[in-house]
Amino acid sequence: MKETQRGKRFIVIDDFLSERDFCAAQELMEHATFTRQESVISIEDGPAFRSKGVQFRDGLEAFSKDGRPKLYEELADAVRAYSDFFGQVGADWDRIAFAFWKYPAGSRLGWHNDAGQGRQGEFILFLHDRWRPSWGGELKLIDEDLQESKVEVTESDLVLRMEALIEQSTTSPVAVVPKPNRLVLVKSETIHTIGRVDQTAGDTLRRTLTGFVSKSQKRAAALVNAREKFEAILAAG
């Protein structure tokens, strides 16, 4: 495992899993049940295939003690290790959600930023055996702090809003090739897209385990209320 690239809003880690664990991860994906998913971003994207999601909340430090696949344990460890990126477990996040995805030739996912729902960020682990750069499917992202609330954008369509923000950015998109056993960490609110998988990929699918790191909104609200009550007591005293 080695960090090969880092930007303001993303980190690339190559050779993330050992050969044995990578094969085990592929086998886990092979036995998953997938359903066809139409894009929630744009009707022009084409379909993808998603497995049933898995989500863990409290007790994240005990991934290996209750029969959960080692793949999830390895990813949880990586998220905790990059506390400077995702924040501290408990204080900044308390949930990790996982799902396998398959993108066939002809499909993509339009520009979006995965903002909201208490998300601190996400990660993408590429699980195909082989990927030629000419097959497309790159993870493209804007490595710049562009928030809709800070830029005047009037478009109602999500993709058009994202594109309007990109037009006002001062950088060009970074393209991360979907190299096998490559893990990419991405901060929340990062504008990104999955490039269309080229027809020359044939039957080869872009295979990933994708997950979100987030903070329970109910718990966050409870902490705020508790702090406000405590401050009120101090003020009254």
Rank of each mutant, 00 (worst) to 15 (best):
D21E: 14
L60P: 13
A91W: 13
Q120E: 12
R206A: 12
E38A: 03
A76V: 15
G237N: 08
D66M: 14
L109S: 12
I41W: 07
M29L: 13
G202P: 11
D14P: 12
L223H: 12
L17V: 00
M1V: 13
R36T: 14
V186G: 02
K140G: 06
R6A: 06
L141G: 04
F126Q: 11
E155N: 13
P180Q: 04
K150W: 15
A25F: 04
I11L: 09
S156P: 06
V224D: 08
E27F: 05
L146S: 05
F63D: 11
T204K: 15
S83E: 15
D198H: 12
P47N: 03
V186Y: 01
S214E: 08
K102V: 08
F16V: 00
V184M: 03
A78T: 15
S134W: 00
F56R: 01
A226F: 03
H31K: 10
E19W: 07
T200M: 02
E38F: 02
D66W: 15
V79G: 11
F49G: 00
P178R: 07
M1S: 14
R68N: 10
R119Q: 01
T35M: 08
S216I: 07
Q199L: 10
E19R: 06
L139D: 05
A222D: 00
A62T: 14
F85Q: 08
Q168Y: 01
E3H: 11
F10G: 03
A236G: 06
N181Y: 02
R219A: 11
T171K: 14
V54G: 05
K102P: 00
E3F: 01
E27Y: 10
I166C: 09
I41C: 03
Y82Q: 14
L141H: 11
E189L: 15
L60C: 05
I13Y: 06
V174D: 02
A25Y: 07
T210E: 01
K150M: 15
T208Q: 04
L234H: 09
A201C: 01
F230W: 07
F126M: 08
S149C: 02
P133C: 00
I96M: 11
R161L: 03
D145V: 05
I41H: 06
A99E: 07
S214M: 08
V54C: 12
E19F: 02
W93F: 12
F85G: 06
S107L: 01
V197M: 07
L109A: 13
Q120I: 09
E155R: 14
